[in-house]
Design a protein around this nucleic acid. Structure first.
Lengths: 111, 111
DNA sequence: TGGTTATATAACTGTCAAGGTATATATAGA
DNA sequence: TCTATATATACCTTGACAGTTATATAACCA
């Protein structure tokens, strides 16, 4: 068991992103996730383990059942990393927007 | 060559995130990246290929050299995904903040 | 207690990615 | 033209991972 997983690796797997999306609505039992994801129960349990390891979900036991709940905090790290890039792509959109405005202005002049 | 890589997978690799961080400052030659990353040239070239495939970098040829440049646009997809989670972790911080305010208020009353 | 339900873990398999070395490609420069 | 430089690609090895089936664990219920 190596387990030096990062949030980024956890998010790389599409099924795990789907699990998070499902947990965003409400906590779920493993069985519910198995059904929603159309995947073997051990497969789902393994993904949940990864998500637990990076702190993206927590578990609450209830008899034989386990409620998995979203813990969004680790996403803040990704957000911070993205933060320093945000202005870059936003600037491009802005420039594109400027260009568009300009073209529309010309269009109006030609009428 | 399979190459149905997603931007999430591209970001999962720490070396690739470092490459993006380096390109955030300015465009770079492959050789510069090799030096900065202390990694074999083919290794770096392979990471650059993945980044190219998902559109996170573009190349400009200049004689035998290739200038790699950051294309931040694909990060917008990740940002959009994160967006629907943002209020969740921010709410928690806010609750923490509320609690703090409350404690400070009590503190003041005790003086 | 014995059976059923819910989930985790073990063991196995196939695929894929990351790293390396060796080599191909292409351009610059002597 | 020959050599050096810069980068990409081919090929190989290794390890990790996602998925599976089989089994362990543990709690509930009859």
């Amino acid at each position: 068991m190596r387990s030096m997983t990062t949030v980024y690796e956890a998010l790389a797997e599409p099924t795990r992103r789907r699990i998070l999306d499902l947990l965003r609505e409400r906590p779920r039992l493993v069985g519910e996730l198995v059904e929603a994801l159309e995947m073997s129960q051990p497969g789902v349990s393994k993904h949940l383990r990864v998500l637990r390891e990076v702190g993206l979900v927590s578990v609450r036991q209830d008899a034989q059942r386990r409620w998995y709940e979203l813990r969004p905090e680790p996403l803040a790290e990704v957000n911070t990393w993205l933060e320093s890039y945000r202005h870059l792509w936003e600037d491009r959109y802005n420039r594109l927007d400027d260009l568009l405005q300009e073209l529309q202005a010309k269009e109006r002049n030609n009428d």
